[in-house]
Nucleic acid binder design. Sequence first.
DNA 1: TGAATATATGAACAATTATTCACATATTCA
DNA 2: TGAATATGTGAATAATTGTTCATATATTCA
Lengths: 119, 119
Amino acid sequence: MNEEILNEDIQIVDEEKVLKVKETLPNDELIFDLAELFKVFGDSTRMKIICALLEEELCVGDIACITNSTPSAISHQLRVLKQSKLVKYRKEGKVVYYSLDDDHVKEIFEKGREHIEEV
Amino acid sequence: MNEEILNEDIQIVDEEKVLKVKETLPNDELIFDLAELFKVFGDSTRMKIICALLEEELCVGDIACITNSTPSAISHQLRVLKQSKLVKYRKEGKVVYYSLDDDHVKEIFEKGREHIEEV
DNA sequence: TGAATATATGAACAATTATTCACATATTCA
DNA sequence: TGAATATGTGAATAATTGTTCATATATTCA
């Protein structure tokens, strides 16, 4: 039974601990999704967009101006943020306004800042 | 004065809003550091390591076993986690035990999970 | 309708990065 | 001391990804 769970090629120091942790580990899909989510936060341009949207609902062009980027680059990044359900948008004529989708973004941002500022 | 702050090449929709957000934006260094921090969470292997260490202090070999990876790959990734002050370690003979450095890791992890599971 | 403007998008390029492999270092113990 | 074991590390490779550029789409308004 343990042969199926444990990797035979590696010397295990504490087999009991290893089996216990293997059992309590979240499934691969959740781990993958979590990594994908944090990857979205892991880019300076997107982080800047998030910071800006923490203050105000903003349109693509104004975000580009604020972040010293181009509307095209921002549009690409907003798509990534949209796909992760971190931002939502509303259309008003030619202009598309983006805003943060829920409070998790702010909470994750704040926890990150706490860690940075504590070190 | 506004000429220095605003990017002239982009049409601004709401100048007042743009200037206000530009002023309240965190400085580039903090934004960069935050992105670098979340980048560390943005990899499946590192996320698995973090999940494992949420349960138990573990040595390199056992982490490799748990994550179906090699000690070398894990060692490389632990270096990244160490540099971000997310894990700490203690040496016991040949064996090096790693554990999470502070509660921020767990908090960031939990906030991420909340977001995933709400969608 | 047609010009002007805001945003979106596909392809290409450059840069970053995770893993592998070989090997180095450190520690134990016979 | 020397073999065995655990971990660390540098270089190379493969894969991922952010930005740019050209262009497409959508909307307004004269």
